[in-house]
Design a protein around this nucleic acid. Structure first.
Lengths: 185, 185
DNA sequence: AGTGCCATGTAAGGAGTTACATGATTCG
DNA sequence: CGAATCATGTAACTCCTTACATGGCACT
């Protein structure tokens, strides 16, 4: 649907879509070019996009295959925008599985896991904050829209990391109160 | 690695592992049984687990195939626990893609998307909070460990939802200041 | 003349999902 | 007796990832 949304703004060819998608997501989500082409094929099979006739008037011998969105595609896109995404429960991220599983091994082991994870998360949070500041300063690119995108993405990342850090604190306090209950004094 | 961690605690057979995994994650992550078996095959191929000889002394005619962790498996598990997960940047969730792409269509459209998403997220946050309270009350199950797991999971979910809600606010304020800049007064 | 970017694709493989097939046991 | 649960597996499909193959153009 991301590809489709980009095509709704303007007809483009595959390579261009990859670049646009990456710019739109502040470079945080890189896209394999190959996937763009297979995705376009899939969208075409669903009748949501169609290849444009190549106007060879361009002259430069480059082999471009621009695509445009179809009427069906526009409808599908509007329907998609029209309803909120039901946000799925967090995926089975390595990080979450690790902490949950550590909880049932020794408390000491679990505390160590949490600690290491906290350090790592904190580092990543700092990174995200740095990126935010850089983008706010009108940073990486000449394009203000790209800077805004980069800033927004950096902000979700930071926001999520903070959430995870808070969660680690909660886990730790649970773990400590558990230990205390078993080992009073 | 989750399956492997469970096997490190005690040898189990596939069906049991599914149940244990789901209990350990408060029922938030359900697991297809089929996947457990294919995963066990993969772990076996990597030499991390091995089938136990069936002691037919049990007597009940049930066809159980218990697995145990190997020495290599233990080492792999310790190495896994030993280093923090490098938390990947948020995946390309429907929700994020939708907001990012909406940003570049009309501001009005984008505000509508954000609004719908906020309503949905708020609803999901309430759900998670309810679950937390239920688990704290010693809720669903007789097993306190399962209740703790359910509570922890509900808390990550809630924490993440809150983060996303905050992010939506940030998006909205960016959007409004943008609009103001273009349409002063 | 050569390196690197623009541009399009194909192929192989990993992991997850849903669904299906099969049979035993337990419990009302 | 019938339905639910225990238990093990297989098959088909989707999506993503990595890697490979190919060729033109631009700039040094």
């Amino acid at each position: 649907m991301g590809i489709l949304a980009l095509l709704a703004e303007q007809p483009s060819h595959g390579y261009q879509l990859k670049a646009a998608f990456e710019e739109r997501t502040g470079g945080v989500w890189s896209l394999n070019v190959g996937q763009v082409y297979t995705t376009l094929d899939r969208l075409k099979a669903d009748g949501l996009v169609e290849p444009m006739e190549v106007e060879s008037s361009e002259g430069d011998g480059r082999d471009r295959r621009p695509w445009r969105i179809t009427r069906d595609g526009k409808e599908a896109l509007e329907a998609w925008f029209g309803e909120p995404a039901v946000e799925p429960v967090p995926a089975r991220e390595d990080f979450l599985v690790k902490v949950l599983m550590a909880f049932h091994s020794s408390p000491l082991e679990a505390l160590a896991v949490i600690d290491r994870q906290r350090t790592e998360l904190y580092r990543l949070l700092q990174d995200a904050r740095r990126t935010t500041r850089r983008a706010q300063a009108g940073g990486g690119t000449a394009d203000p829209a790209a800077d805004l995108a980069a800033e927004l993405m950096a902000e979700v990342v930071a926001s999520r990391r903070e959430a995870d850090l808070r969660w680690l604190d909660i886990c730790e306090s649970h773990l400590k109160s558990q230990t205390k209950k078993r080992n009073p004094a």
